[in-house]
């Protein structure tokens, strides 16, 4: 792996890429399914009268923010694989780093997300480290921000990811930390 970061990747830093709109509007079915998956009985998600009183009407669980941009497993006419967090996969491919883990994830929450919203997103690469060697292998760390807005242009949140793309240098251990990405 070259020490020098390729010029095209340097050019990605600070640039808003992959402006996209969610494949479907925000809807309560997924909110209830997600609440059910973690047994979240918060009445602002289940009781419309409470939602009206406290949150000005129904809203989605704030931590669901990335869900609205996860592509369908299959869609008619699709000819290429669609990935959430495409900048991350672009970095893996361009730098020749087949494996990756996410080490840190920060989510900041803005205006509430409501059923019927059509959310928009873009991704910004903030940094790529010098080559590093960890117990997983040799590669680079990078920081990516995903920005989210609604159809009115209101900021509804952002996610900040730190990823480590790497090549293995030893057989895979039986159990490892971090999450594959």
């Amino acid at each position: 792996m070259s020490e020098e970061l390729p010029a095209d990747i340097r050019g990605w830093i600070g640039e808003e890429r992959y402006h996209e709109e969610g494949e479907f509007p925000v809807e309560m079915g997924y909110v209830w399914t997600t609440c059910s998956s973690v047994e979240n009985g918060n009445p602002i998600f289940w009781d419309e009268a409470v939602a009206r009183e406290l949150t000005g009407g129904p809203i989605a669980m704030p931590t669901m923010i990335s869900l609205w941009f996860r592509p369908h497993h299959w869609a008619p006419g699709r000819t290429r694989e669609v990935q959430p967090l495409q900048v991350h996969f672009d970095l893996k491919a361009r730098l020749g780093l087949p494996e990756a883990v996410m080490t840190d994830n920060t989510i900041v929450f803005g205006e509430p997300v409501r059923p019927g919203d059509r959310l928009k997103t873009c991704q910004v690469l903030h940094s790529v480290s010098e080559p590093k060697t960890t117990k997983l292998g040799s590669g680079r760390f990078w920081e990516i921000e995903v920005r989210y807005t609604n159809q009115k242009g209101d900021w509804v949140g952002a996610e900040h990811y730190t990823g480590f793309g790497y090549k293995r240098e030893a057989p895979e251990p039986a159990s490892k930390g971090g999450h594959d990405a």
Binding site: T103, T106, V108, F109
Partner: peptide, 15 residues
Amino acid sequence: PRGRLGRIKFRMKTS
């Protein structure tokens, strides 16, 4: 229910 998340930062060490 009036509690409103501002941000969370989490670090996964294992699974």
